[in-house]
Design a protein around this nucleic acid. Structure first.
Length: 228
DNA sequence: GACTGATCATGG
DNA sequence: CCATGATCAGTC
């Protein structure tokens, strides 16, 4: 049942206030409130927190390639953190095409668009917590400041250059200070046709862009300790 | 404990 | 199948 799901928020304030009312709730409690079944384990529940918050906050984009709140231009991201508020994981941003269609410049990139305005919702838990015991934290509405945009842009353009040179095979998660490229697929057997170093077509594992935990951690620390 | 590569679920 | 949503789990 999704009868408890609200209509899309019309203003940023409304969106943020909705999450403030959810803050402190466990995922189990929030799931019950919105009529979602709690997955039987965290392994089977990857992505559950994100889908739950989409329902709870009235996101509309579903699985389409659009912001979660198209009218507000806001992307919703849950961010798993430990009890000290430190990110436990990197953050998925978007697919990284290896077929020659990836924009070379940061200004034209989908990564920049996706990250231009993000509502971060911390999911707070320690290592022993079951999925349902993880708690929803206070939201942070974020846009990259000059320093953050500069870091992201430099990483992006360095990575995009490697992709453009057909060095897909040599791209690993080791590159990039804030932004990295990692495998992103149902399993390692999945493959896409990509342009190789000699311009030939070869198969490679699908990749995506991720934000390193060190980057989101610094972002959170700045926003929390300075008040915004 | 951090980090990378691998993997799980849902919907169109 | 491909996009969305991420976290797991082995290795460094």
């Amino acid at each position: 049942m999704d009868s408890a799901a609200p209509a899309p928020p019309e203003h940023e304030d409304e969106l943020v206030n909705r999450d403030r009312r959810l803050a402190g709730a466990s995922l189990a409690a929030a799931a019950e409130r919105y009529g979602l079944e709690l997955p039987p384990s965290s392994t089977r529940g990857k992505g559950f927190a994100g889908r739950l918050l989409e329902v709870a906050l009235g996101a509309t984009a579903g699985s389409r390639a659009a912001p979660d709140f198209p009218e507000l231009g806001i992307e919703l991201k849950t961010l798993p953190v430990d009890l000290q508020g430190k990110p436990r994981e990197s953050t998925w941003v978007c697919h990284c095409p290896l077929d020659g269609s990836l924009p070379i410049s940061w200004a034209d990139s989908w990564v920049r668009q996706k990250l231009s305005r993000v509502l971060w919702i911390p999911i707070v838990y320690d290592a022993s917590a079951e999925l349902g015991d993880r708690r929803i934290g206070l939201p942070i509405l974020w846009s990259p400041n000059a320093e953050e945009a500069s870091m992201l842009g430099q990483d992006y353009e360095a990575l995009a250059e490697r992709v453009a040179l057909g060095e897909a095979d040599t791209i690993s998660a080791r590159h990039g200070v804030a932004l990295q490229i990692r495998p992103k697929a149902a399993d390692a057997r999945q493959a896409d046709w990509v342009v190789g170093e000699e311009g030939e077509w070869t198969l490679a594992n699908p990749r995506g862009f991720y934000l390193r935990a060190s980057f989101t951690g610094a972002m959170l620390a700045r926003r929390v300790t300075t008040g915004g």
